[in-house]
Design a protein around this nucleic acid. Sequence first.
RNA 1: GCGGCCAUAGCUCAGUUGGUUAGAGCACAAGAUUGUGGAUCUUGGGGUCGCGGGUUCGAGUCCCGUUGGCCGCCCCA
Length: 437
Amino acid sequence: MATFQTLPGFREFYPDDLARRKHIFDLWRRTAHHFGFVEYDAPVLEPLELYKAKSGDEIEAQLFSFTDKGGREVALRPEMTPTVCRLVGARINALKRPVKWFSIAEFYRYERMQKGRGRCFFQLNADIFGEPGPEAEIELVALLIQCLASFGLTEQDFYIRLSDRNLWFYYLEALGLDEARIRGVLGAVDRYEKYGDEAFKAYTEQFGELDASLKAKVLAFLEIKSIEALEATLAAVGHAKLGARLADWRKLLGGLDAMGLTKFIAVDLGVVRGLAYYTGFVFEAFDRKGELRALAGGGRYDDLVEKLGGPALPAVGFAIGDMTFALLLEQRGLMPNFIQAPDVYCVIGGEAARRAAFGDIHALRAAGRRVDYPLKEVAFGKQFKLAADSGAKLALIYGDDEVAQGKVKIRDLTDRTEHEVARGDVLAVVRDFFSAG
RNA sequence: GCGGCCAUAGCUCAGUUGGUUAGAGCACAAGAUUGUGGAUCUUGGGGUCGCGGGUUCGAGUCCCGUUGGCCGCCCCA
């Protein structure tokens, strides 16, 4: 039957699927509002150059890009960060700081599909602009945690790995490495968890073997899993920036602790995220069982707004994708079963009864009730079954007998009781039933 | 871009060494049932067996190709 099929990696949302998606979005949106973030949206199609400027020319291979009829090179957005940088950068002089913005939007990447990854997906993006200190990170990490926890997920289900590219930078600098070598080492650190010693291969090819004692220090640093271990390690290294950076760490962890969120946080310098544009704290959310892809990721990108042509503006942000997150909710039994039920279902007799019912049906709907009825004449017995199947709380029965007497029979489908009311009282009775219930 | 596995009804699947008109459960619909429920019974609609080619007297079944899916690699903004 299906001559035309969905493009690979694209998703169709049948009503049940859309109900689940909406559930996620609604809670994300509400949570972001609770944290004082305001919502924005932006174009799905952007100049290709916007993404090249941020990520380099190679990015084009991962994009849905094409030339439009005006000869412009364009791409479907693969992420929100460059866009929001442009929006905020353009109006920063008029915006009250800190700028706390979020969006829920769809993104497109030309990639091979995998579990938890398609060619289109939705993300919650939340960012704070204009705040250089760790106060911004406290807000965002707390928001990220609550965006997961508000679905019923606990510290048994997920955790946030917290790391710091600055600290790595300063530490490696103190060990005498130049910037190129530092980036090389960070690349290896990012891959170390997965590949072990193999992760240093690229570094070795570019710069030669990393000095053994240096490598030992890198590996020891990578293993650091607490602020205490961090302080102990850095105490031995004399470097002015490191002391200030440690103060930032204490402020961040102290703030999160005061919010009662320490149980979700794992200090883990093994996470640096591959992205070259991160400039400070980075964090990623994972399921505790380690079965799924990352749930969310974020970090500080103080240079990006300027790099994209805006003013110098510090920024931190994160994104949660909907696919892996939905998988986790389903695995933990936290995805509700949505029944899209009317409030009231009408059981209707012949043509005269139908005309009588229509007046009330429309009035009830206009008053904000969800009302449904069989479009065509259906046997009474069947209609009661339809009423029960619909999930409605009340059935209004417009039989020929009732209509002839100017009455409507109201059946409570939950306890199967019923009583008759005058036609003119139906709206009030229904309203009272639902306001009491 | 690379590798492994897979593809039969809306869903879950059966289909013998290749052999009549491709089946079941669930779901959907009609009837039993012109006035009272999620049950039951009866009946029905729905399939180019992903698509194309090949082997064969004969292909859902075997072979090749292709498209799509799942899983992994690369990547992951």
